Amino acid sequence: MAAHRATVVGVPEGDTVHLTARRLRAALAGQVLVRGELRHPRLVGHDLAGRTVLEVASVGKHLFTRFDDGRSLHSHLRLDGSWHLYPPGAPWQRPSHQARAVLETDGRTAVGFNLHDLELLPTGEEGRLVGHLGPDLLDPAWGDAHAAEALRRFTAREASELGLVLLEQRVMAGVGNLYKTEVCFLLGLSPWTLVRDVPDPAAAIALSRELLLRNADRPQQSTTGDLARGRQTWVFERGGQRCRRCGTRIRTAEQGDGVYARIAYWCPACQPGPAPTRMRR
């Protein structure tokens, strides 16, 4: 039986983390751990064997594995982290020295690789790690109050660039560079458009949630409706290629500063508005 895994390129989108939580929950929830190793330098003294996994939940891009002793294991995939699922005793697809957590039941082994952010904390204190986040776009309880709060936080960034605000987890949690890029394209706005110039901010939030929901329960991510390789996105990672709508060459440039910088992709014809002075293509 092949391993189920959440393999990540770049900072994962909220739907990737949501799917990871769903798969881990299906494999572990209600089960007693026969092996519970934490190999992170800060946690090597902890052994979770004997604990029952109550649930696995995602909050934005954060994962919480909750146990019956009132504690939660928090993990964040960052740039290169992932959780794999294997039958017990099956060979791992990544080197063992990259494993930071091994949670094994009688039927499945969950291995967290390259989990740089790993913390064991009281479940009641999870808010310490995620309380600053905006509404989770994949929150199953999402309603009008969530949408209103996201809109309040979004419009408060009126002097900031749309692309950067879409990525800001304190505004709304779950959007990564793929969806930021595609939302801007589908709205017909340059990523450098200031928030105060966005005609319908509520539509930007609704579209972000719609795209994440569309892909939340499958490993393939598509914003075009086509799952065929090379046809899944409108402009993301298509720099230099022709726009699917108008044929103009898609441009790329860096947006953001320092560690927060990401490559932006956009069609200058379909997305009029501000543009950077330095472009890659």
Rank of each mutant, 00 (worst) to 15 (best):
residue 199 P to F: 10
residue 233 T to K: 02
residue 130 V to Y: 03
residue 81 G to W: 00
residue 183 V to A: 03
residue 185 F to Y: 15
residue 146 H to K: 06
residue 148 A to E: 15
residue 240 G to A: 15
residue 130 V to L: 09
residue 252 T to R: 13
residue 39 R to C: 07
residue 171 V to A: 09
residue 136 D to W: 04
residue 258 G to W: 10
residue 214 R to H: 15
residue 128 R to A: 14
residue 13 E to S: 07
residue 63 L to D: 00
residue 126 E to Y: 02
residue 232 Q to C: 04
residue 125 E to M: 08
residue 195 V to E: 05
residue 194 L to E: 14
residue 43 L to K: 05
residue 222 S to W: 13
residue 103 L to R: 00
residue 202 A to F: 05
residue 210 E to K: 15
residue 120 L to Y: 12
residue 153 R to K: 12
residue 152 R to N: 08
residue 157 R to T: 03
residue 7 T to P: 00
residue 259 V to Y: 10
residue 195 V to R: 02
residue 43 L to F: 10
residue 21 A to K: 01
residue 193 T to Q: 08
residue 52 T to W: 02
residue 171 V to T: 15
residue 148 A to H: 09
residue 178 L to G: 00
residue 185 F to P: 00
residue 79 L to I: 08
residue 22 R to P: 00
residue 135 P to E: 04
residue 2 A to Q: 09
residue 125 E to K: 13
residue 51 R to E: 08
residue 187 L to F: 11
residue 266 W to R: 09
residue 82 S to D: 03
residue 184 C to R: 01
residue 211 L to S: 04
residue 162 L to W: 01
residue 66 R to S: 12
residue 273 G to D: 05
residue 125 E to I: 03
residue 161 E to R: 13
residue 2 A to F: 06
residue 106 D to T: 12
residue 108 R to S: 13
residue 160 S to K: 12
residue 138 L to R: 01
residue 261 A to N: 06
residue 105 T to W: 03
residue 192 W to S: 04
